[in-house]
């Protein structure tokens, strides 16, 4: 781990210690049952954060192969969660099997192999064409378009979009060596934006952004959390190849894309009749509940950085 990474993770460690302290203090003060439920959930979330940060820190320390494996595993769990509450049929079995057993490993292998062109088209072109073929061979026409679209959506979001986060390691930027810092920048801004929107929403939230889609999202939370996360992004310019103003603009883009991802995936989840994607991360729900904003922010940040900064 480089000195910069060490400083960054020490900072994150400090944040977690403060958060745990606040959670503990709130736990001693709260009296009402509703408040108790909120604080218990908050403390479960903080506990899960410790684990997630530890896993992320360990993977980045161990290098790019392990980091890619971590993101491949994350994609695996997100795809599993998505397809578990999506009504697929027995006739989709081969398409679903190809999504899991062929396209997850292949997509991440292409990153490891530094094969950028195929990485960009594997799923939007090859999987897009292959999956409906695998389904149609089974001869079941009922609901065909919807069934195919569901699997394609799941694969695009859970694998293609999320894989753009570790793909940041591939970008070649003049005078900038440590691409792990770009990955750290993306993940830190997305997650801080989510957390700060939650905190601002709980403290000041009144006007709901989209009450039917996601009742917890408020304008106060979005603006307060989004602006704070953007400022933090600007303050982190020294770890990136960007100027402070550029870092703020990119952090702003990450915040907006992340918010959009959270909103869209919340609508998808509700259309499927679920409140959470899963139960794997206590307090948060499923893995996809934590990765929804990353799935939208990662490709946006990857392409903006690639277009404006990469050689």
């Amino acid at each position: 781990m480089s000195d910069t990474m060490l400083i960054l993770f020490s900072g994150v460690l400090g944040l977690l210690v403060v958060a745990s302290g606040v959670g503990f203090a709130l736990g001693r003060r709260v009296r009402t049952p509703a408040g108790r439920a909120t604080v218990d959930n908050l403390n479960a979330r903080i506990k899960a954060w410790w684990l997630m940060v530890a896993v992320f820190a360990l993977a980045t320390t161990l290098g790019s192969t392990v980091t890619l494996m971590l993101f491949a595993l994350t994609s695996f769990y997100c795809l599993r969660e998505f397809l578990s509450i999506t009504p697929t049929r027995a006739a989709d079995h081969n398409a679903v099997a190809a999504a899991f057993y062929v396209f997850i490993p292949l997509q991440y292998w292409l990153i490891a192999d530094d094969w950028k062109t195929l990485f960009s088209i594997l799923i939007p072109v090859w999987a897009f064409l292959l999956l409906p073929v695998l389904s149609v061979l089974r001869g079941e026409t009922a609901d065909f378009l919807a069934r195919t679209a569901r699997i394609q959506w799941a694969l695009m979001l859970a694998v293609y979009c999320i894989s753009h986060a570790p793909a940041l390691l591939l970008l070649e930027i003049e005078g900038f060596e440590e691409n792990f810092l770009l990955l750290f920048f993306l993940i830190a801004i997305v997650q801080l934006s989510d957390v700060l929107q939650y905190v601002f929403g709980k403290l000041f939230g009144k006007r709901k952004v989209a009450p039917r889609v996601s009742p917890a999202k408020t304008w106060e939370g979005l603006l307060g959390g989004g602006i704070s996360a953007t400022l933090i992004g600007a303050g982190l310019w020294w770890i990136t190849p960007f100027q402070p103003g550029q870092a703020a603009a990119l952090a702003g883009a990450i915040v907006i894309a992340g918010f959009a991802g959270g909103l869209v995936l919340s609508a998808v989840k509700r259309s499927l009749g679920a409140k959470d994607w899963g139960t794997m991360i206590e307090g948060h729900g499923g893995v996809l509940d934590r990765m929804d904003s990353v799935s939208f922010a990662a490709p946006v940040f990857y392409h903006l950085t690639n277009y404006y900064f990469a050689a």
Binding site: F76, L79, R80, E81, L83, S84, T88, R89, A90, H93, V96, A97, F100, Y101, G278
Partner: peptide, 18 residues
């Protein structure tokens, strides 16, 4: 729940569905 989708009759291998 879901086992008919994870490993339907006649399929060669199961798929990861919770």
């Amino acid at each position: 729940s879901n086992l008919a989708r994870a490993f339907p009759k006649g399929a060669l291998i199961p798929v990861p569905i919770t």
